[in-house]
Write a protein that binds this DNA or RNA. Structure first.
Lengths: 165, 165
DNA sequence: CGAGCATATTTCGCCAGCGAATGTTTCGTC
DNA sequence: GACGAAACATTCGCTGGCGAAATATGCTCG
């Protein structure tokens, strides 16, 4: 390893040296991403509890705001890599909390439009600051140039992943 | 953006330009990691279905092999960022499938030793090749140097995340 | 030596998400 | 213009994971 500092994945990898036909670099990259995502999820959940919201609720509101305040469930589901059934569940809880409203499409009555309520937008704004703080705290250990490098590399992987479907 | 190729996160980000007080780079990094992990999970689940195994079963066996063939549930849970209760559930299904065996610790009878069965080791070996192939296919769009750069950056983030606890 | 405190695991009730099946509405085609 | 196929959302049954409480064992100290 390069530096003297170790993370849990280093400790995991050294146990494997020579034990299996096995690309250490690939394992490292994959495992670290998995752990980072899991840690982020836990940090954000703890932070968002301050405003009585759950991570998945915020993410859904967030996508909805990005879409201009309204979108169809299937579109949201696809964007968030979620099954349609899962999205129905999310929307149920959001609607029950009054953060979101469902409206049958006037033109095509198979569709449903999901709209952000004023209360939903308000809570999203609050949560926005919280989430930004948590994510920044993590990513800011890298300087601007390093962040850009990291982002570019991740993007190339994601392009590959998304082309595979 | 640097290249002309776009991924879904690019498309997401451009909608946000100027709309919120919001670090685009941080959002990019975080969202791409989340999506990559989710994609990986889906790819691996599809691939592992060939040997009738689920992703979480493989990961558990994997950690168990790394630990030398046996470990305690709480140790495994901690290593995998899982709650003790969750680990009990995993071990239940693994034991039911005969891939793993639980043995009460002889010295300290509060403890349980989880041991890999021969069948478990055999199936792990099979799955190993499959998983390696899927992960490599993704990560190999980067050359060796790029992989190393990526790994080093991820590691610095993970060190930060793990120190936060 | 026994009462309480600590440790390790499991049980219990709950929740989010998935795949498959269902009910509607719309479209394409003959 | 009617009928089969496709598009959308939802319901249903199931599963993995979580937090809190329960259980069982070990340790410590008066």
């Amino acid at each position: 390893m390069i530096g003297r500092v170790e993370d849990s994945v280093d400790r995991h990898l050294v146990r494997w040296r020579g034990k299996a036909p096995y690309d250490e670099r690939v394992e490292g990259v994959v495992t670290r991403m998995q752990f980072l995502v899991k840690h982020l999820k836990q940090f954000k959940e703890a932070a968002l509890a301050q405003v009585g919201m759950q991570d998945f609720e915020f993410e859904t509101l967030h996508r909805l705001v990005a879409a201009g305040g309204s979108a169809t469930p299937s579109k949201l589901a696809a964007e968030m890599l979620l099954s349609p059934a899962g999205m129905t569940g999310r929307l149920d809880t959001l609607e029950r909390s009054g953060l979101v409203r469902r409206v049958r499409g006037a033109d095509d009555r198979r569709r449903v439009d999901v709209e952000l309520t004023p209360k939903g937008r308000e809570l999203w704004t609050e949560a926005m600051a919280i989430r930004g703080r948590v994510e920044s705290e993590l990513v800011s250990v890298l300087d601007a140039g390093e962040q850009q490098t990291l982002d570019a590399l991740l993007k190339r992987l994601l392009v590959q992943a998304e082309s595979h479907r």
